[in-house]
Nucleic acid binder design. Structure first.
Lengths: 131, 131
DNA sequence: AAGAACCATGAGAACGATTGTCAAGACGAG
DNA sequence: CTCGTCTTGACAATCGTTCTCATGGTTCTT
């Protein structure tokens, strides 16, 4: 009974995610792999990232241009991100008040199966310094 | 000095937005126009929607699948939406507490030029009834 | 009303991110 | 080592959206 195999490519993608500070797109990750000589197909990068998201080991969010960005997160629970628009660096933030507010508003209006997305974008100190 | 012209297509797109209750994609709007005999090119629909968004007469948000959805909104000020995943119907909601929380968190972490996105998705009463 | 100036349109090509296809390759259990 | 099966990779395909550019429609001026 084999289920999830431990392949070179899977390890490589995972390794890149461990080293990255912030969110990165699939294509960026593919690029990094290429630069360090790890040959991994683009489809494989997408597949593995998707698998990691499904396994809840990686967080994904959609940037303003519609690209999906990935990042390994510390917190296992529900949380949001404060993301640097320029370098992608991110801080994990929790906002219990927001969560309860969102569900309250939703139920008050008769909505069920409530979900929400919340991301904060800005320019981090380092990036605004290096202008 | 001509600037923004009043064309049949522009009026048609605007009219559809007025009648729609909820968020709709550019392609859906193009479809509606087609059904009612208004021949408008898809590019034109995109262009006019974009113009309306720039003019802040229409709100846009990105659905989970990455599609951009449009809707004419009442409130001129900053607000968020409670959107039905199934029919697109939306309620405009304001969350002053969330706004201030977001900026506080951001500045505490040294971020500037702060923006945020927040959308609440759920299934509205009507849609959950008709299952 | 007529002409000029120029913005807007539409058909289709182009694009960029992502997903699907499928034969060939790699992994792990036995 | 062998076999069954999970993975991979090269490339085609998809999907939403944007671009291009020749043609048509609007508005301003006279």
């Amino acid at each position: 009974m084999v289920d999830i195999r431990n392949t070179r490519q899977r390890r490589a993608v995972s390794a890149v995610l461990d080293e990255l500070e912030g969110f990165a797109s699939a294509q960026q990750i593919h690029g990094v792999l290429g630069q360090r000589g790890e040959k991994v197909g683009l489809s494989t990068v997408y597949r593995n990232l998707q698998a990691l998201v499904d396994a809840e080991q990686v967080d994904a969010l959609r940037g303003n241009d519609g690209e999906v960005l990935y990042r390994r997160c510390e917190a296992g629970e529900h949380h949001h991100h404060l993301v640097c628009r320029s370098c992608g660096r991110a801080v994990e933030v929790a906002g219990p008040a927001v969560e309860s507010w969102a569900t309250k508003v939703a139920t008050e209006n008769g909505f069920t199966d409530v979900e929400h997305t919340l991301e904060i974008f800005g320019t981090c100190a380092d990036c605004s310094a290096s202008t």
